[in-house]
Every structure is written in C-alpha cells, then in structure tokens.
Amino acid sequence: MHRLLDVGLEQLTVMVYKMGEVADNAIDMSLRGFMNGKDATEAVRELSDILGTMAVEVENKAFELIVKYQPVASDLRIINSYMKIAYDFERYGRYAWDISYTQKKLAKIVKCPPHSDLMLKLVEKVSEMVSKSVEAVKQHDAELAKTLADTEKEVDELYFAYLDQLSKTRAQDKRVMCNLLVSRYLERIADHTTYVGEAVVYIATGEKISLR
C-alpha cells in the first residue's frame, strides 16, 4: 500500500543520503589537504555551504511531513532522526571547513609533517568513522552504528595522547597550534559520528542509547 507520506519520506531519505555523501566528501577533501599540505579551502567551503543549505531543506521537508501527515511510530522516528542526522552532517562540513581554514591561516598551507603517528592514526580513525556513519544511515544498520562507540573511545585516547605529546614539544610556532586545533576538530567530528549512530539505532530499533 503506497501512502501519500511515502512520497515525502522518499524525498527526505534521498536528501539525507545525499548530505551524507557530501559530508563524507568534505571531510575527505579537507583531511587530504591537511595531510598533504594542499589548499582545499575553496572546495571545502563550497561543500560546507551546500551542507548548510541542505540541512535547512531537510528541516523544512521534515516539518512539512509532520504538519501534513502527523506521522507516528517508525515514520515519526525516521523524520525526527533525519533532522538530527542532517544537523550532524552539517557539522561534519563545518569542521571540515575549520580544518582547512585553520591550516591556511596558521600553517600557511605548509605541510606540517612529519606528522606524528598519533595524528596519522587520529585522521585515519575519524575518516573511517565518518564513512561508517554515512553507511549506517544508508543501511539503517544499527549494528554498524553501534561499532562507532569503540572507535570513538580509541579516538579519545589518541586525542589525549596527542595533546600530551604536543605539550612536551618545544616548538611554539603556529603549525603546532594548527595541529592542536585540528586534533580538537577531529575529536569533535568523532563525537558527531556517534550522534549519527545513536539516531540510526533509534530509527532501526526505537531504542534510545548513548554511544559515548
């Protein structure tokens, strides 16, 4: 049975999935620029702006569906969760921009390496979490979403270990500040991937859990 609400839900789903792809792309572009000393600000800024616009569109569509159809049960859970996820994807984009912009302003696009192993692992883990969170949304995969909890814990440990490492460095230049800020942005992105994961679990099971 095809309901009028289904048309709107399909549109909303396409919008959120598209946001996930754009957000993943923005983070990837930003981190590649950061790791390779390339200026990605312009492209990342564009993607971040697109995500901001799309988040508003998702919110508008969600409100439209609520007003028109007063959804309940799984329909309501999906709409409510997509609004939250859209916000988190928007934040991915914003942090991607922050990373690129910080690199440009403080490090003057100079390649900061040799990056420590800790930073390399941090980048690797957070990239993995972002891709995994986007995939979990697309599949409504609660089990995949729950695995973000373990990785987030690893990211936290890496982040504090990296802060400890930075605190012992003698260098006082802006590149150190850049790395400090980027590590913070990465840690925040990891947090947002767990929020996305929580929303996915809620969609799939109706259960409200904390992945942090």
Binding site: M1, R3, V72, A73, L76, G206
Partner: peptide, 19 residues
C-alpha cells in the same frame, strides 16, 4: 504505542500501512 509499538500489526495500523 505511538512512538515505538511492540507489535508489527500495531505499527502497520497506526502508520496507515494496512492494505
């Protein structure tokens, strides 16, 4: 019941998915 019904029949009824 309206947020997370336990039974699939309830879910189908309240969301209008009854054929």
């Amino acid at each position: 019941v309206f947020e997370n019904p336990k039974n699939e029949l309830t879910e189908k009824y309240i969301t209008g998915k009854f054929g």
